[in-house]
Amino acid sequence: MNKLSVKTMAEYFAEGKNPDILYWVGSTGSFDDRAKKITKAFVKILNKAQISFGVLGTEETSTGDAAKRAGNEFLFQMQAMMNIEVLNSYNVKHIITTCPHAYNTFKNEYPSLGGKYKVQHHSEYIFELLKSNKIRVNKNLEGQKVTYHDPCYLGRANDIYDAPRELIRSLGVDFVEMKRNKRRSFCCGAGGAQMFKEAEKGTNEINIVRTQEAIETNAKIIATGCPFCNTMMTDGVKNLAEGKLETKDLAELIADSL
């Protein structure tokens, strides 16, 4: 992979400049090995489209989504207010995230605490780049069967169903829906802070049920738009059909086709 061009907001600031967008990488995108690939794929797309964007780098911290949903409203608001202070100090107007959880938190929960930004999920943003011909994709996956898992915090939580599907279709693949899709999509099992704990005792694991549904489509690729979903589906595939299909983020699918 070519060297990525990434600049922090601090670097822009030192130059007296302000980039058009802030890419919020997120804790998972920064530290999780699998998610880092998604981060890099998205940056590759941004570089290719020559977008002026900045990241917060070491100034970034957790949005507080997991803390909030685990019931720690106190910690969430501490994080939110610290983040808002940093974002406002850089005069950020437009945030793109590769994580539906960060997206939801910025879009819905930060405004009343003083953080008002235009917020987009990367699927929406990449779709815009595609429509405005800032990037072109080749059809290297033509004919491949691809299915899409709707992340809860993108789909049901914020009604974004079309942009991810348009992106997948743009690759000329054979797109197949899972039995439960869009607003009826079945959770991967990681939301609401479940990512950070063992599941309660039950008869099955949520990600196994969902992965099974994906396998039933005979797709070779499960596309998704959330690093948590990615982890859960990747684990599910490992358990049920290792090597038969793989889980890819929308950004990775597009980046691979540039």
Partner: peptide, 26 residues
């Protein structure tokens, strides 16, 4: 495990035990 996650966010700004200084290593 969730208490651990809270502590991590409090101490290093991420739900895992990674140093904030390593955020841009990717």
């Amino acid at each position: 495990e969730l208490n651990m996650m809270f502590t991590n966010i409090e101490n290093n700004g991420a739900p895992w035990q990674f140093s904030a200084a390593d955020r841009l290593n990717w």
